[in-house]
């Protein structure tokens, strides 16, 4: 019983992390209708930049600047490549483009930083459990929880109360009308894409504290991120958070009883959701129905 409680709690903490990764993906998907297969690429760009900057800026400085640079990189990619595809209604084009980008970014990372993993470290104070019984609650995981909460609430407030946010929300419903009202939707989408890449970079920088910092790191995180978005509902940011938490807890519970299926269970949940409610738990009726 204690084991189950531990695993549910632990699953929630893991789910928070999936949610953070899913936010950026959901943001880009909802406004730009770009299925960003290169999300994992932006993740490692943020992680590697943060690692490289840590000696100069310290852990916290790098945690801010690394993801910001990933956002700038995202902006450049959007301006040079992605925006040419907005005119094409078929999402296949952007899917192929970003898939190619994912491969290129991973290979560039390997060329620049090498295939060998880098020893990304976490400040000593965060790098230990807060209590001996609940040893899986570490300072670092609390930081991730806090950052995810701040980011989610901040994003919610931005979308709800600022002009840019209101335009983005309007744009996800009906981009043409927003454009005809005189809003520069190209700028809007560029900003949105860059913000999505910033969140990817942030999640990546945080992930490198728990995982090995290697070029394929983004690949292995991409799938749970996609599952979180699909389960939670495409186009819904709250859904992305919910989806992340749900698969985290499900994986935790499965581990208690049948560990070998803990990876498979998240896909099983996705399957069930897609069959019963294709738009996802909190998704709007559009892309998949």
């Amino acid at each position: 019983m204690q084991l189950l409680f531990f695993n549910v709690f632990n699953g929630l903490l893991q789910g928070v992390f999936y949610a953070l990764m899913a936010l950026g993906l959901a943001l880009i998907l909802s406004l730009s209708s770009v299925i960003n297969m290169a999300h994992g690429g932006f993740l490692i760009v943020g992680a590697y930049l943060a690692f490289t900057l840590t000696p100069y800026l310290g852990f916290w400085g790098a945690l801010v600047v690394g993801p910001l640079l990933a956002g700038v990189f995202g902006l450049i990619v959007e301006q040079t490549l992605v925006r040419w595809l907005y005119k094409r209604p078929d999402p296949l084009y952007s899917l192929l483009l970003t898939f190619g980008l994912a491969l290129i970014i991973q290979d560039l990372t390997r060329t620049i930083w090498g295939a060998q993993g880098l020893p990304a470290a976490v400040p000593e104070a965060l790098n230990q459990p807060l209590s001996t019984t609940l040893f899986f609650i570490t300072g670092y995981r609390m930081v991730i929880l806090a950052i995810t909460a701040v980011v989610t609430i901040g994003l919610y407030l931005t979308l709800r109360y600022t002009l840019v946010g209101i335009r983005i929300r309007a744009g996800t419903r009906d981009l043409e009308t927003v454009a005809s009202l005189g809003v520069n939707i190209y700028k809007l989408r560029a900003l949105n894409f860059a913000a999505g890449c910033f969140f990817a970079g942030l999640a990546g920088a945080l992930a490198s504290g728990i995982l090995g910092l290697t070029p394929p790191m983004g690949d292995s995180l991409l799938m749970p991120t996609f599952v979180a978005v699909i389960v939670g509902g495409v186009g819904s940011l709250a859904g992305a958070v919910l989806g992340g938490l749900l698969i985290g807890v499900a994986a935790g519970i499965t581990t208690t009883y049948y560990p070998a299926a803990s990876e498979a269970v998240i896909y099983l949940i996705m399957l069930v959701v897609l069959v019963i409610r294709p738009r996802g738990l909190m998704g709007k009726e559009s892309i998949f129905e």
Binding site: L3, Q14, F136, L211, S220, A260, S262, A264
Partner: peptide
Amino acid sequence: PLGTNDFSSYLIK
């Protein structure tokens, strides 16, 4: 499974 990211639940067990 090969390629596991999160080992927390295994470690708890």
